[in-house]
Design a protein around this nucleic acid. Structure first.
Lengths: 340, 340
DNA sequence: GTTAGCACTCCGAAAGAGTGAGTGCTAAAT
DNA sequence: ATTTAGCACTCACTCTTTCGGAGTGCTAAC
């Protein structure tokens, strides 16, 4: 077990390193007002903390930097998230008070502001199809052959896709078809649409529609649901400001990885409530092993529907960031539950 | 006027520099098979070309690199766009043959492939509101207070926004309202919607709707048209591969600039037909003054509706890129005109 | 247990030397 | 009148070397 003093020194050191990004030496720590022991004493403690695996040296005679284990300990035991500053609160309030016309805009804006406030890259995963339900379907013809199918979900999200109208089907038939779809499918979770159609609706079609076979194929076409998650990035270039990414090569690897859908999925799938911090090697994705990821989930009717996260160097301003993310994710939850 | 030999040397030098990104010396040029004069001769020619402003030196005893004037000359007079390779053609064909469900997808995909093929960052400006017309409006209630307004344009683009329903307005009234809107506004260019409503529709509302004042306000709300252009990026990180962006600072400035909507507007507004090449300082935007921008526009019913462009270092593979962009922009034009 | 003192380590900046690719100029060759 | 060979010169780069400073670990005294 760590002594009171060791805890204190560890905390001071990590705080200092997070701020200055330079190995911290015993003298630096001893110079603080609230430190009443000599550099030599601190050196002894530092050596012990290093033996325990919480600290590292960049070379034999350098100061110490936190190891990943050190950060882990820091996050788990030494961290009291700072109260948000009034400026932060003001910004967040402004964000959520703004009248946002498009649902997507709120994600875009949040991602942007979050990265602006923290100087890290933010990634927001929009509502997953799984938990939202269908509100309304509309089919709008563009020409004789083409049409746009529009889906509105319970969260106010609008999805659209082009479809090719089957030849020789009368407009009235199509209208009837859409009416049936709306009647039968409203309120059904998006993920279950296809199943529901196959299991229950074919019967109905057979009953009401003349050309039911063709209609059936057509519907299959519409509902080939591309279950793509909506991912919103904010401040992708923020990492370029971090000294640990002064090397273009590193930035490239990271940014390229973030373009991969599989990577995003792997990183951001919410596995539990509240806030999760993943530090360095703890991340499953190779390119992110020198980063930390902070993830918060928001929910709708008590179920996770998306995540909000920040990615930055392992040396992250955990204190501030955790508070921020917590607040914003709660606002998200409120927003969704209040609106719809 | 430049002599035959000067033209030749200039071309060879620029080609070589574009490929190897190293100052080119007289000896390098003389080593080519098709060069039958000595390094000394070439040195004299190079000195002349430098005096004329087509070439520069990085320091007194270095080889030459093209100046921006040099590139300009190269692009204007020395360039015969290379025929696309079969691989390129194959890729483009595949892109346009793919059945793209969402209109947006084709932009996303094109941007991606374009940057993949060229290794530069691509920017595609989606159809501008100005030239497209309204096809259909739909208002879908989400709750008692909320609704989603959906706009479908003649190019199959779908726009949506949240609106707050005015209190105490009956559903039938709203339905009537939407019907009027569709009847009167279908075919009107998006940019003129608001004007048209003010000038012509208020009269109609007064006639048919009970609560016309409230409806009027409501409609104003819906049509507060956020005339935001749709911008699609491809391969934003591609520039990290370019040696001229080995400096993180430079990348940051450029990438940050590209986030600014005003910058994108300034850069990409199409001012004329065909392909435009803007080299270095010719660009109006500060952050892009060490880049080249190649821009092609595509059209719908003979009018520009958007642009496709590539941004990269001034040392760009103009030859290849121009051919590619030309092909793709033409395919875009075809696509839009064939589909709708 | 704490601290002063001291030898030791290693990084990083600065200075110097050597190399090579390239130039410009002059004078000879074509 | 061009073209070319020859040569002195320039400058970026790379390697060493040097040197100061920040930091450590250890020992012995407090």
């Amino acid at each position: 077990m760590l002594s009171e003093r060791q805890l204190f020194i560890l905390q001071v050191l990590i705080d200092d390193y997070i701020q200055h990004v330079e190995p911290v030496g015993s003298r630096t720590i001893s110079k603080r007002e609230d430190v009443h022991f000599s550099p030599a004493t601190i050196r002894n403690e530092l050596a012990d903390l290093e033996d325990l695996g919480f600290l590292e040296k960049t070379h034999t005679s350098s100061g110490r930097i936190p190891s990943e284990k050190g950060y882990r300990f820091y996050v788990d035991h030494l961290l009291s998230p700072t109260i948000l500053t009034t400026a932060d609160i003001f910004n967040i309030q402004a964000l959520f008070n703004e009248k946002l016309e498009e649902t997507e805009r709120i994600f875009e804006q949040s991602a942007k502001i979050l990265s602006e406030l923290t100087n890290y890259t933010s990634i927001i995963l929009g509502p997953e199809a799984i938990e939202t339900t269908l509100k309304h379907i509309q089919l709008i013809p563009l020409g004789s052959q083409q049409a746009v199918a529009i889906f509105v979900t319970s969260t106010g999200h609008v999805e659209n896709r082009h479809v090719i109208l089957p030849e020789g089907i009368a407009p009235e038939e199509i209208e009837k078809l859409v009416n049936i779809l709306n009647e039968k499918l409203a309120g059904v979770p998006l993920a279950e649409l296809h199943k529901k159609i196959r299991d229950e609706l074919n019967v109905v079609f057979r009953k009401y529609l003349k050309n039911h076979q063709q209609a059936s194929l057509f519907i299959d076409d519409i509902f080939k649901w591309s279950n793509k998650d909506k991912v919103f990035f904010g401040g992708k270039t923020k990492m370029l400001y971090q000294p640990e990414f002064r090397d273009v090569e590193k930035v490239r690897i990271l940014l390229d990885a973030l373009e991969e859908k599989t990577v995003i999925e792997q990183l951001l799938t919410a596995n539990n409530d509240g806030i999760t911090v993943t530090i360095g090697q703890e991340n499953q994705v190779e390119a992110v092993k020198n980063c930390s990821l902070i993830k918060a989930s928001y929910s709708f009717h008590g179920k996770h529907i998306g995540t909000i996260s920040l990615i930055g160097p392992t040396r992250m301003e955990y204190k501030r960031v955790i508070g921020l993310l917590d607040t914003i994710s709660k606002e998200f939850t409120n927003l969704f539950n209040a609106r719809f």
